[in-house]
């Protein structure tokens, strides 16, 4: 049975379309990721799904409950962690947790099992005010608070934004464990590299879904051979490849450039020869598997052309 069913969902703000006729579904027990930059419509979508915002058109249901009509019942079943860590800065770690437990008519003890893994990491600081915690700790506390009423489905809106790489990694490990406990976890993130940590992902841009599938299947949709190219002078390499008439796309990726060619049939030596005539030195070239970011950019370009 699906946990989320969305049909033709649309949300506008004045003339801006934040969510553009989205249709998709998420199965129970999935770890599902919405991946896209700021302004893609992730937050609006999450707010509609958590009953906080009314859609302009289309329908959506979570746990078989309509997000508009059954909002009261739905609110008791879902957990939500908004974009900013919504904690009371002037309350201590323990007081925050106690408060959110009481709001949902439960106690910390009752559901301690569920949050134990996460809460033990911040328990030594339970008397500390939330305002004095580091980003990583706030994130853990906010997650504990969102879980304290044992929700069946958990929505996390950009939980890792502005958090450093280390804390991000730890956070995803926590989400994985929650999924193993049977909770449906729906996450949004602007970081493309987090896609591989989800069971399924939807790439979202300008209110539209560019692609929705497992990360592996998304990668398979990348239909051109991808080359990673490197040279002594990256800048000169970029200039040279931009001028190359067969160049289809060229994006820097760390120390490499990711290159695709317009031609169906070509050999790497042709490109190598061209670069040599352009006085590029120490050329290194290898075919590689595309990653999610490659796919995202390819899909963005396709969308722009349409």
């Amino acid at each position: 049975m699906p946990a989320i069913v969305v049909k033709n969902l649309t949300k506008k703000y004045g003339g801006v379309i934040a969510v553009n006729a989205l249709t998709f579904s998420v199965e129970k027990g999935e770890l599902f990721g919405f991946i896209g930059p700021d302004g893609a419509g992730k937050t609006s979508l999450f707010r509609i799904l958590t009953t906080l915002l009314l859609p302009d058109a289309g329908e959506a249901s979570v746990n078989n409950l309509d997000v508009v009509k059954d909002y009261k019942k739905l609110r008791t079943q879902l957990g939500y962690m908004p974009g900013r860590f919504s904690l009371y800065q002037d309350l201590s770690v323990e007081e925050n947790l106690k408060f959110f437990a009481s709001v949902f008519g439960t106690t910390i003890e009752e559901n301690y099992d569920l949050i134990k893994d996460i809460y033990v990491q911040i328990e030594p600081f339970k008397k500390r005010r939330a305002g004095q915690l580091s980003g990583g700790m706030k994130q853990k506390l906010a997650l504990s608070c969102a879980l304290i009423h044992k929700p069946e489905i958990l929505f996390l809106d950009e939980p890792t934004t502005g958090v450093d790489a280390v804390s991000r990694k730890e956070f995803w490990e926590m989400l994985k464990r929650l999924q193993q406990k049977g909770i449906t976890v729906v996450v949004s993130t602007p970081y493309m590299d987090e896609a591989s940590l989800c069971g399924r992902i939807a790439l979202i841009q300008n209110g539209k879904i560019l692609g929705i599938d497992t990360p592996n299947n998304i990668v398979k949709t990348f239909d051109k051979p991808l080359l990673a190219v490197k040279a002594r002078n990256t800048h000169a390499l970029i200039e040279a490849l931009r001028k190359y008439p067969h160049m289809h796309s060229l994006y820097p990726f760390g120390e490499f450039l990711h290159y695709t060619d317009k031609r169906v049939q070509f050999s790497n030596d042709e490109i190598h020869d061209y670069l040599t005539t352009e006085m590029i030195q120490q050329i290194e070239m290898k075919p590689i598997e595309p990653n999610i970011e490659d796919c995202f950019m390819a899909l963005m370009e396709k969308q722009d052309h349409e």
């Binding site: 958590t50 906080l52 609110r75 908004p82 959110f100 608070c145």
Partner: peptide
Amino acid sequence: ELGTMEILLVSPL
């Protein structure tokens, strides 16, 4: 401003 209103609204309160 803090964003906690979102959580309160989503809660059974």
